[in-house]
């Protein structure tokens, strides 16, 4: 059975030009012995020809106006940035009282929702650590950035939040639901801590920002491209939004 599978796969790989010259010769020998194998390969080639005949016409069609126009525009004004979408949603929230979270366009993947929860939990565990809040101190920022980027699988820049009054304490690696997650910890002059969780869920999408609250803790979550981000801390909504925006801009930047 296994052998049959291997043979079948070899035939596909042969038909799709995935084999080396040597492997091709082996498959050709097999096809010479086995007419059924030869028939399969011929059949797949015919399928390819039919597919190309069915859709080849598209290649010669003139490019529709809308697509040519899409290529000319440098920016796509139709799409709100996650940040603007969040500001809009905040206004709605202030005046309309929508529940806890808001979405635009794309559905918020559960991965992002879970990341917010993880960020809240991680923050409550590590933010209270006086002596060991981090594994690698903020003084080794370059090392921290290289190490965590590598483990998360997507390169990112450790955001500088000094303008917002937060100094980098350092970071650590956590095991998140979606694989490794980088946790960065910041602290302001009063000892108030802020954590930023970064992970690479394996999708390339853009989501709206989401706010989650749990007791006194609050987390802001979004995904932009390959990186899913959560910012968590113990503070009110307004200061958190300012910090989340700063993190978003630094990562985007």
């Amino acid at each position: 059975m296994t052998n049959e599978h291997m043979n079948e796969w070899a035939l596909h790989a042969y038909a799709d030009g995935e084999l080396s010259a040597e492997q091709r010769a082996e498959v050709e020998a097999l096809m010479a012995r086995d007419p059924e194998a030869a028939r399969k390969v011929a059949d797949w080639k015919r399928q390819r020809e039919l597919l190309k005949a069915a859709f080849g016409g598209v290649l010669d069609e003139p490019v529709p106006q809308q697509l040519a126009a899409a290529l000319r525009e440098r920016t796509a004004p139709s799409r709100l940035s996650p940040w603007l979408a969040m500001v809009a949603a905040m206004l709605l929230l202030l005046f309309g009282g929508l529940g806890g979270w808001f979405l635009k366009g794309e559905t918020a993947p559960t991965a992002v929702a879970d990341l917010g929860q993880q960020a809240l939990e991680a923050h409550s565990v590590f933010a209270v650590e006086v002596r060991h809040p981090v594994e690698v101190p903020g003084t080794e920022k370059a090392h921290l950035q290289a190490w965590l980027s590598k483990r998360v699988g997507t390169a990112f820049t450790v955001p500088d939040l000094s303008v917002q009054g937060y100094a980098l304490l350092g970071g650590r690696l956590l095991s998140g639901d979606e694989g490794p997650a980088a946790m960065l910890m910041y602290e302001d002059k009063s000892g108030q801590r802020l954590s930023v969780l970064l992970t690479s869920p394996g999708s390339d999408i853009e989501t709206a920002l989401k706010v989650q609250e749990s007791g006194k803790l609050i987390a802001c979550t979004w995904q932009d491209g390959l990186l899913a981000v959560a910012v968590a801390g113990e503070m009110g909504r307004d200061p958190m939004l300012v910090l989340a925006k700063a993190v978003y801009e630094k990562l985007e930047g």
């Binding site: 597919l51 069915a54 859709f55 080849g56 598209v58 069609e61 490019v63 809308q66 697509l67 290529l71």
Partner: peptide, 23 residues
């Protein structure tokens, strides 16, 4: 663009939907 349109057309089977996706 032409190949992208062909891919979208084959994926969806619907020319209008395909071009919306390409856009």
């Amino acid at each position: 663009l032409p190949v992208l349109r062909r891919f979208a057309r084959a994926l969806t089977g619907d020319p209008a939907l395909a071009d919306d996706l390409v856009q």
